[in-house]
Design a binder for these strands. Structure first.
Lengths: 185, 185
DNA sequence: GATTATTGTTAGGTATACCAAACAATAATC
DNA sequence: GATTATTGTTTGGTATACCTAACAATAATC
């Protein structure tokens, strides 16, 4: 009998295949370890705890879990590094974080701190398809001569002014066209 | 001594103030109950369980929790409705879901199912500031004569073609300008 | 209205993820 | 190199959020 479970695919009590990926919590640990490796060559329990806002005891537990999954190299009282498998995941999450933060900060024009906090949570919620599409969308804004950076700047003007005072579209379009003509030379 | 906790602000062991909002799980229950109320006037344990992919027993537990927080009207074996407090939260989450799905589907042009699944998770990750800014951004695309629906359509052309065959920008800009001139009459 | 089916609840158990506080190992300082 | 930090680990406990499976209440059918 094959039972489809929320998390596992089982047959006669044996786990055949783990469906779900890592928990948000473990993803955060990997991301943090990667960041610490970059700054200090190696990650320490104390620094991980501080970055994640948990106590050192909680970190030890999480590290054992990650080591069991072969995502980090961990021996008690020793330094912590990512395995190649762990590094792949850590980089993927970091990439998501960077892309989302970039979108929130430079396209939606949110303030950097709020952008970062939202990105922290959103990075676990968006799958690869969504992230990749977001990357392409940001590229499209940059690439398309009808948009680009000055179009994004116009967004401030749009949302900060009232409905009946949103600037001169005629002027804006003319500027856009002349800029395009100039860039084609 | 005042201890700042992840979830609670405590003084001498007493909870002064609950910082965090609802868990993602409880938010999902509220959202589901609202949807069922709309379709069937009332929500039933069985339907909630089906929609959320959990067993009926799990639902009963969650309902007790929500009732304690005064977010639903719940008596054993009776029908379930949202309190006004619960309805406010449920509508807020549903609004987030709708906005995010709309963005993923109609701006990033993801397929509807994937858009919905991502929205399901993202709705818990984005705060009000981020959602509101996203709404304004979508409005801006619609409002600005340099963008609008035909600009979004151009996105398909951008991401589905290779780098050296991305259509005629000159033609596209000219069309954009004439459309603007026509609409001004 | 008794029987059967469906729906809802309860009880006991698992896994995650944290905390607090005692304890152990390593590092720093005298 | 003994003493004193600092850092890391362990233990026991809490809360969430599920599960399974037995049981109870309500609804549907004969």
């Amino acid at each position: 009998m094959v039972v489809i479970h929320n998390y596992l695919l089982m047959m006669e009590g044996k786990v055949l295949y783990k469906k779900a990926g890592l928990s948000e919590s473990l993803e955060d640990y990997l991301e943090t370890i990667l960041a610490l490796e970059k700054n200090h060559k190696v990650a320490r329990v104390k620094d991980i705890a501080e970055k994640l806002g948990v106590l050192r005891g909680s970190v030890t537990g999480a590290l054992k879990n990650l080591a069991e999954k072969d995502l980090i190299n961990y021996e008690p009282y020793s330094f912590i590094t990512l395995t190649s498998k762990g590094a792949v995941i850590a980089r993927e999450i970091t990439r998501k974080h960077t892309i989302i933060k970039n979108f929130l900060q430079n396209v939606l024009l949110m303030d950097p701190k709020k952008a970062d906090k939202n990105a922290c949570r959103m990075e676990h919620a968006m799958d690869r398809a969504a992230i990749n599409r977001l990357v392409q969308f940001i590229e499209y804004i940059q690439y398309c001569p009808r948009t680009g950076d000055d179009w994004i700047s116009g967004f401030v003007n749009y949302y900060s002014k009232d409905e009946h005072d949103r600037g001169d579209c005629r002027q804006c379009i003319d500027d856009c066209v002349s800029r395009y003509n100039r860039d084609q030379d």
